[in-house]
Each structure stands twice: as structure tokens, then as C-alpha cells.
Computed example of a mutant assay.
Amino acid sequence: MPTQAGEELIDRILAHPGDGDLVGPAANDLLSELYAGFPVENLTRLLHSGDDRILPTATWLLSEIPGMAAPLIGEVPALLASPIRGVRYDAIEVVLENAGERDGPVIAQVIGLSHDPESAVRWKVLEFLTEASIEQLQAGAASLPPGQLKELTEWLILQDGEDPDLPGVVIRLEEGDPVTRMFATAAAASLSSEGDVNLLMHAVMVEEEEIRAFAQERLSELRGDDSA
């Protein structure tokens, strides 16, 4: 039965936290069990193991089951605050794929990671800002305190309307601080379409590595460049 197999795989991961040769295959098999019906709530055994070597595996599993990890959304704030870069990175994906309108605080926490010291995490926040639904962004904005992030999130939401602020996107890309440029790049990516990549071209030239890489990736996708 999937439940028995899933429990055995969790036991294996818990018993060999530092052995990638064992944990990797076990995690992949556990992922299959989750898709086969193994209750996602059972992953709390990994999330609460108290072993930092286990936490990346647990968070990765949550990030790989889009829409199925919602019952554990309450576990995500601690993951977003983890000192482990990969945990924070994957936790952002968990929020993107599972958070709803009632999850404003955890969405706001993701937006707050736009100040994260790690470039990879900031890249993931930029992806979140680009891919999140308007409802998710609205929920996050409502939970943010007054200040720059709230103002930028509300501005980003407005770009989904009938009259986006195209000159404002360019100005923010060219003259804004790093966080402002991140939000402007999210707007540029959302507004770009086949044959109209001018906004993303501006983003490719900014100082921040993660923004340049993100913009270049989106440009390559729009142009159908398989080498990206």
C-alpha cells in the first residue's frame, strides 16, 4: 500500500540524513508515493526532524507537488526563514503553487525576501513576482506594512490593468534601487510578448546579476532560443 511504502521511505531518509546516495533515491520514490496518494501531512515527520540535513529534502518534496502541499502551508513561514539557502528557495515555490487569498502573511514573507542576501533566492522571488496570480499579489500587499515593498507590490498589480505604466517600468529599471528594479523586471516580463521585448531588453542591462539572468532567460524563451 502507498501509505506503508511512504512511511518506510520516510524512515529511510530519517535514518540516513547525510547519505545522498540513499536519501536521493528515497526522496524520488517518496515523491512518487505522494502522487500515488500518500498523505502529504506525513511529511511533517521530516519537517520536524530537528536535523538541518533533512530539511532541504522535505522542502524540495513540498515544492515538487504543485497544489498538493496546501495542507502544510502553515509550515512554510519557518522554511522561508531558514538559514539554509536551498530551503528558502524551494519554499518560495511552495508558496507560489499552493498559497491562496487567505495566505497573505506568507505571501508577504516571500515578497520580503526580495532583500535576501543570496542572489539565487532573489532570483526566485523575481520569478514569484512574475508568475504569482493577481489574487496572490493582492493578498500579499494587504499583509505588508506601509513602505517600499507594499507600494511596489501595489504598483505591480496595477500593471495587469488595461493601461500599464510602460514609461514607469523603464524609469524604474534605469533609475531605481535594486529592489525597485526587481519589481520593474517582473512587470517587464509580464508585459512582454512575441515581437515586443523592449522592456526586457532594458532589464538585461541592469547591474544585478539575478535580474540580468532572469531577463535573459525570459528573452530566450520569447525568441524560442533552445540554447537558453
Rank of each mutant, 00 (worst) to 15 (best):
residue 3 T to E: 13
residue 177 D to A: 14
residue 34 L to R: 02
residue 55 L to I: 15
residue 11 D to F: 00
residue 74 G to A: 07
residue 167 P to E: 10
residue 173 L to K: 03
residue 176 G to Y: 09
residue 70 A to I: 00
residue 109 Q to R: 14
residue 158 L to C: 00
residue 38 F to E: 03
residue 185 T to H: 06
residue 49 S to I: 04
residue 146 P to H: 12
residue 105 P to R: 02
residue 137 L to E: 07
residue 86 G to Y: 10
residue 84 I to L: 15
residue 124 K to I: 02
residue 52 D to N: 14
residue 40 V to A: 12
residue 113 L to A: 04
residue 15 A to D: 11
residue 85 R to K: 15
residue 170 V to A: 05
residue 1 M to P: 15
residue 131 E to P: 01
residue 208 E to K: 10
residue 145 P to R: 10
residue 132 A to E: 01
residue 51 D to N: 15
residue 155 W to K: 07
residue 178 P to Q: 06
residue 120 A to E: 12
residue 121 V to N: 01
residue 190 S to W: 01
residue 98 N to I: 01
residue 58 A to N: 11
residue 94 V to C: 10
residue 43 L to H: 04
residue 180 T to M: 10
residue 205 M to H: 13
residue 213 A to I: 10
residue 224 G to I: 05
residue 92 I to C: 04
residue 137 L to C: 11
residue 31 L to K: 14
residue 59 T to Y: 02
residue 56 P to C: 02
residue 133 S to H: 12
residue 85 R to I: 06
residue 117 P to T: 12
residue 168 G to V: 01
residue 139 A to M: 07
residue 35 Y to A: 12
residue 13 I to E: 05
residue 226 D to V: 10
residue 66 P to F: 08
residue 214 F to V: 08
residue 198 N to V: 11
residue 40 V to C: 06
residue 140 G to H: 07
residue 8 E to Y: 00
residue 170 V to C: 08
residue 121 V to Y: 02
residue 11 D to G: 05
